[in-house]
């Protein structure tokens, strides 16, 4: 069984205990539009010379979530999905981990933290590695 990233160049996998994970997105230096996955063209300005790569994470705010009670074959229910907004401004669709599959397990607006890890198995039994978010462990000050 091999670990395979969902796609190369989307995120940083921590290599040591102090190393933090992050997502690789982009931001427009003219209008500030930030997105993940990164793009080379700004959707707001529609220009191809204004986007620069940025690191996103590890913290984000939970915008909404739900517990899926049905799922495709590679996602056995129940599983939790959500939308988070990175502190840097980019919205991200994500699986949610370290969370009971309960309809009231999370509060909208709460702080979430990026985890890079297995999101599913592919048809050959490989671990597909991608991004997930868990309720943040740090105390919000």
């Amino acid at each position: 069984m091999t670990d395979l990233p969902l796609r190369e160049g989307l995120f940083h996998i921590p290599e040591s205990p102090g190393d933090k994970p992050y997502l690789i997105g982009s931001r427009c230096r003219v209008c500030g539009y930030a997105c993940f996955p990164g793009k080379s063209v700004c959707v707001r300005c529609r220009r191809d010379d204004t986007m620069a790569e940025i690191k996103l994470g590890p913290y984000a705010t939970l915008e909404t979530f739900t517990v899926m009670r049905v799922g495709p074959h590679d996602f056995p229910p129940p599983y939790v999905i959500g939308y988070v907004r990175m502190k840097e401004g980019a919205p991200v669709f994500t699986l949610i981990t370290d969370c009971e599959p309960k309809d009231d397990a999370l509060k909208l607006g709460q702080e979430m933290e990026l985890v890079i890890g297995k999101i599913r198995e592919d048809s050959r039994g490989n671990n597909v590695i991608g991004w997930k978010f868990k309720p943040a462990e740090r105390q919000v000050t």
């Binding site: 969902l6 899926m68 049905v70 996602f75 999905i81």
Partner: peptide, 12 residues
């Protein structure tokens, strides 16, 4: 590949 479903989108 991330478990998105339209039911989930409406629910959220």
């Amino acid at each position: 590949g991330l478990g998105f479903q339209f039911t989930g989108s409406y629910a959220m």
